[in-house]
Amino acid sequence: MAEKKTNQQTSTEVSHGNATHEKSFPPLDPSTFAPQLVWLAITFVTLYIIMARVALPRISTVLEERRDRIASDLDQAEQLKQQTEQAIAAYEEALTQARNKAIGIAQETRDALTGEVEAEKLEVEKQIAEKTIEAEKRIQDAKTAALTHVNEVAGDVAQSIVQELIGGKLTSAEVNQAVSRALAS
């Protein structure tokens, strides 16, 4: 470019001597207006048509598609979030139900077991009471039996004592009478 410039430069400097001084300032030179304006019109109109018909609608479509896509993605995200929340709520509810159920079952089992234990206890108590009564009866019987034996023993002893002391023999009837009397008194 430097080369080009120097070339241009020398060419102007060469022409400086003759006509250039009378030449008007190029950006304001009316003789060059027509070609510039013709091509400005051609290029500007071309560009406008390309932009308005092709380029801008395309960009606009892409931007709209992106905006729609983002909006729909956000919608979807919102929906998924709601679904998640619903799932969490359902899970929480199921959990609560399960917990309540578990508590119920535990309570039932506890109640059932307590009832059984209570019933068994009653049963056992009843049995014990029966056994006590039986035992008492047996003791009474034994006592009565023992007392009966006591009479016999006492009679035997008395008979033996009488025999040893007086050498006489007593009939068992007499002895029994005496013992009964003694016991009665």
């Binding site: 060059t32 027509a34 070609p35 290029t43 560009l47 390309i50 932009m51 801008l56």
Partner: peptide
């Protein structure tokens, strides 16, 4: 006078580049 000038050349270049970009 509709001569193709250096000015017109760069206008055309601009139109081409803008169209390429967009």
């Amino acid at each position: 006078d509709a001569s193709f000038t250096n000015s017109a050349l760069w206008m055309v270049v601009a139109v081409v580049l803008i169209s390429l970009l967009t």
